[in-house]
């Protein structure tokens, strides 16, 4: 009898411990989620506030007289139609090209033995640890007087204010954080069992066909992650776009919004402008949130297959 009672007590203790732990875990997760979501939600709510809600002491989080005026002003001042299209086109093109190049290069690094392979790997890591700001002057001048380092005779072309710097670097896997994508794809392919490929070779398929038909279909989750990151980083980038292109892109438009608003209204009004700025921020992150909502299952459910393991 005594033994059964002790067992029961132990089981109870165990259960209690588990319960307490799950309470602790829930509180912790809720707290962290709050810290992450708070800025987004506060921006969202204040972006709908009207000028009168600002003065109203009873309004704290939920606007009493919601209005779309902030969005209207933000869109007008940011030249939204144009900047949005520019950012969207550039981000889609860059992310797609980066995806293609890093998949191909990552596969080459993972599956073939050749002299200098480790050197190429080291080069990919090296591109990551050099801050692009260090090279910004040579980069700027090289695109301004682009002659392939003397390969093309003459004074060279001015490729600034054209998408070519982005296209060429993305295509060759040297774009923004491209080295990381190469490593991610390499890790993924290196983790695939080689039996599938061998079977394809035995059946007479060449390396290219094996790559496209056998390897790519199972690489989709990793590819989605790479595309998403490539898109997000290009979308948020204001460093390279201002260096190579112009200011007609969303991040630049957003960072200039306060000055533009002052010009537009002919006065400054920090409180009210912050409502419009928040509307502008929402406009900028809304597409990212939508994309994330669509694609997040790829990296929430199947991280183990994305090849992100160090």
């Amino acid at each position: 009898m005594a033994i059964i009672a002790r067992e029961r007590r132990l089981a109870l203790k165990h259960k209690l411990g588990n319960f307490l732990f799950s309470v602790f875990r829930t509180v912790l997760i809720l707290g962290i989620a709050y810290i992450i979501l708070y800025p987004v939600l506060s921006k969202l709510s204040s972006s709908f506030m009207s000028r009168r809600d600002l003065i109203d002491q009873t309004v704290k989080y939920i606007p009493k007289r919601p209005t779309l005026d902030n969005y209207r002003f933000a869109m007008e001042v940011m030249n939204f139609g144009k900047t949005f299209t520019n950012s969207l086109v550039l981000s889609v093109v860059v992310a797609t090209l980066q995806l293609v190049s890093s998949t191909v290069v990552g596969y080459g690094l993972a599956r073939f033995r050749f002299k200098g392979r480790n050197l190429v790997m080291a080069a990919a890591i090296f591109t990551l640890i050099v801050p692009p700001q260090m090279m910004m002057v040579p980069l700027y001048l090289n695109w301004r007087f682009f002659n392939m380092y003397g390969l093309i005779p003459g004074q060279g072309f001015n490729l600034l204010n054209s998408p070519w710097p982005f296209i060429l670097t993305a295509l060759t896997g040297t774009g923004l954080r491209n080295g990381l994508f190469i490593l991610v794809m390499r890790q993924f392919f290196a983790g695939m069992p080689s039996s599938l490929e061998e079977a394809a070779y035995v059946d007479g398929a060449g390396p290219l066909r094996t790559f496209v038909q056998i390897m790519l279909p199972s690489a989709v989750p990793s590819m989605v992650v790479v595309f998403l990151f490539g898109f997000v980083w290009q979308w948020n980038d204001s460093f390279l776009t201002t260096l190579y292109l112009d200011s007609n892109f969303l991040p630049v438009a957003l960072s200039n919004i306060t000055t533009r608003l002052a010009q537009y209204f002919g006065k400054t009004d920090p409180q009210y402008f912050s409502l419009i700025t928040n509307a502008g921020s929402m406009l900028m992150i809304a597409p990212l949130l939508a994309m994330y909502a669509l694609l997040q299952r790829y990296f929430v459910e199947s991280i183990e297959r994305t090849g992100l393991v160090g």
């Binding site: 190049s101 191909v104 290069v105 596969y107 080459g108 690094l109 599956r111 073939f112 033995r113 050749f114 002299k115 392979r117 190429v120 080069a123 990919a124 090296f126 591109t127 050099v130 260090m134 090279m135 002057v137 040579p138 980069l139 090289n142 392939m148 380092y149 060429l168 670097t169 295509l171 060759t172 896997g173 040297t174 190469i182 390396p207 790559f211």
Partner: peptide, 27 residues
């Protein structure tokens, strides 16, 4: 196999030399 390996990684090798190593040395 090793030739194919070079072919697959060639885009990056070219890009690294032209768009990375060269500006790096230049800076």
């Amino acid at each position: 196999r090793s030739l194919t390996g070079y072919l697959f990684t060639l885009p990056f090798i070219i890009g690294f030399i032209l768009f990375f190593l060269a500006p790096f040395v230049q800076s």
